[in-house]
Design a binder for these strands. Structure first.
Lengths: 152, 152, 152, 152
DNA sequence: TTTT
DNA sequence: TTTT
């Protein structure tokens, strides 16, 4: 089966904090909304229009923990993943669909530490305490894997 | 605003014919479902599992007409585009969301003409009559589309 | 360092067979040229022009063995990877540069077996003996992850 | 011809200023090196290794002018384009090859204006004078360019 | 050196 | 609803 491709590449800003869910087996998942923008000029009115698109990002396990640790609302990230539409039933038993981006790779383009340089450090949120160098992270699953061990 | 990226790249098979809609101003739109597959081996049972993901593809104007003319159900295509989630109200006035892929570029990887070589020509569907050379097309529709808006 | 992206996505045809090199430690590497085409119409003469671009593809270990086994000259493949420019010295001691695409993911879009369906089987080339089902392969390193198990 | 794909996506930092070349017909071209990094841990020594890859970026016409105006050495950009290897002869008449990335789309992820906030403004470089709001730009240059006509 |  |  296959010979197909399902790939998404996004650069956008987190619209909220990463929400974590932990499972019994030790796995975990992180979720957050990501905003991308599209701007154009309306030909009729000649005014500038901006549309924001919201993407539901899902990150797993180690990657989820890295997200939770290093980025927060407002940060800019590069997300690579695949589209997955889940089907569920609402309270009336109707089929509903929800489309998510399952993250397979990512790069942090800013972190709160950077944008919080100076006076912008909020009280009560010391997840990234000052002094910790939250340098941008380029997490590439490939990098860690012995690349060679593919089960084929 | 902006400094963002919203890009999707898919290789998959059309699950149905392209459905066209024509507008008064002369524009048109084509829609079709595209299937991508993901296969993996269930670690517990060691059996091969395939999941099919369905994507709602939307193509516009000249590009839509090319799709309608050259590809049909079962054909394999490369689609590049962006994710767009539309909001609508169902009959009960509840908010509903539908995620589409707005096609900005494409390449045909097969066409019915190819796969129909020989005896496989269905009756009643002569959109691509035998003898017409339906060569793969590598079209960049951005060029034509009233993306209008670019500030240059 | 980092927070960067180096990604290449190609769909093209193998210009030659996969050349394998085996290393002492047990690793191996496969190399082959991949052709992509760009066509446009010369505005002055109104004639159709095609340019072929040749890419030096490098595949490693298990992936290399899969390539050698399943595809050959003329086959169409999807290649995902990263750009790497190697520096070397020519016989005169001058610096030379050679740019390669290091493959990190791939999908076979045709295989000789497919195109050889029927009478087209060449004598003397039984790398893919008839009867062997050379199904397209969608190698995704992610495939190993328990992507399947979470209730979301 | 065709049914192929030649796509590159980079996020990296400009290694130098954009060098402009103007042609008689009114067209122009901008060139600059872009650095991407790859980091991994050496399994033997357990030390962190960083490799920098340099890409030769080529931008045309309007897009080139925007690059020259808004970004400079050190800025981070997203570049989308295609790979092109040019053949040329060195002084000894030997064939040489040079691989470039022809930019077809881009997004500025930082601009000097941003990174120069505060005291970091260098003397002698007022291309982006303070007070000018150099907001990130998301431009799709394909639309305008004759893509075909320049002798590179 | 590929492909249409 | 596709494909292998």
């Amino acid at each position: 089966m296959s010979g197909t491709l399902n790939k998404v590449m996004l650069i956008g800003h987190l619209g909220d904090e990463v929400k974590m869910h932990y499972f019994e087996g030790g796995g975990c998942i992180g979720r957050f909304p990501l905003a991308t923008n599209e701007t154009y000029t309306n030909k009729q009115t000649n005014e500038r229009v901006t549309n924001t698109e919201w993407h539901n990002i899902v990150v797993r396990n180690k990657a989820a923990e890295i997200f939770e640790k290093y980025v927060s609302k407002g940060d800019k990230v590069y997300i690579e993943g695949r589209i997955k539409t889940r089907k569920w039933q609402d309270e009336n038993g109707n089929d509903r669909y929800s489309t998510e981006i399952q993250c397979t790779d990512f790069t942090f383009l800013t972190t709160k530490n950077e944008s919080a340089t100076g006076s912008n450090t909020q009280q009560g949120n010391q997840a990234n305490p000052v002094g910790h160098k939250a340098e941008p992270i380029n997490h590439k699953p490939e990098v860690d894997l012995p690349e060679d061990d593919l089960p084929f």
